[in-house]
Amino acid sequence: MGEVLLTVNDLKTYFYTVSGVSKAVDGVSFHINRGEIMGIVGESGSGKSVASSSIIRLLPARTGKIVSGSIDFDGTDVLKLGKRELLSFRGRDVSMIFQNPMTSLSPVFKVGHQMVEMICAHHKVSRQEAYRMGEEALRKVGIPDAGRRMDSYPYELSGGMCQRVIIAMSLCSNPKLIIADEPTTALDVTVQAQVLELLKDMREKNGMAILLITHNLGVVWQMCDSVMVMYAGKTVEYTTCKELHHNPLHPYTWGLLDSMPKLSSNSGEELATIQGTPPDLRLTGTCCNFSNRCPYAEDLCRNQVPDLKELEPGHFVACHRQGVESRLFRGGVKQHE
């Protein structure tokens, strides 16, 4: 730990659509150390999935483009990789787990066939050897009766089982980084707990880093070391997990934290909400993206894009109202004015 594995600097990914340029990711920087679990949280449309797909350059070829920024993975510049190098980079160095386990496996091939195909693509082994490796991997992720499961079709497995198969696949090549894009959103809580536990276990055993994308802050608290909050394509806050919980600084983060119903809270009181809806991503880039929903917004917020500032060591916030000398306080009390 401690050694930087992935550095993303000022990444901008735009989508060129018929109706205009959609700034899905508009200046995002972060880094992941070896063996670290980092979380990206945000609502739908905040660009968290696009940011992570950009890391392995998995974007729609015609419309999606990485406009600027740099991605450095363990010494290689990902943006300069050729087609062939990219193929071996994906899957071997970085593998990805998608949201819906049922659709990320092909329904017409048996699990074993798909595992063998995957392993043969990345390792120089015979098919028999690959089959044996696949079975071993299934056993490692806790699938009972792995031998028989190799011979089943994906539809015969439940959602949790499918997700385990996909995790097993992504582990086969022993990647340095796993990108898990909402790995448990489609699963029930009890199964979610099993899958998260498994991911954590695999980290302990193999020491890979995990980039966990989720909209569930509870999952972040349980899993992550550091966390980045995204809103409308921009980083609004980036810090360690504990710091975000104990000392969140951005008004959006406050809204997000308050609007989650808590098990221990009293149900009599009204839930805090964030008024309004997120902005159109084609029109952003002239002001603070949160200014139309922010209760603290001022003229400056509506006219200028805030930079990501390091307010406290390791705690980055993008907000005009949060400065070194002037601070906002959660709950609407404005001091230091």
């Binding site: 009972p144 998260l196 536990e197 569930n216 509870g218 608290w221 349980q222 504990k242 919980h245 221990s264």
Partner: peptide, 19 residues
């Protein structure tokens, strides 16, 4: 099985085996 409400919370997990 519900994810914790804060990062410091240590939960005792009762894991149900199987599906």
């Amino acid at each position: 099985a519900i994810p914790p409400e804060c990062p410091d919370e240590e939960k005792e997990r009762i894991v149900l085996q199987g599906e």
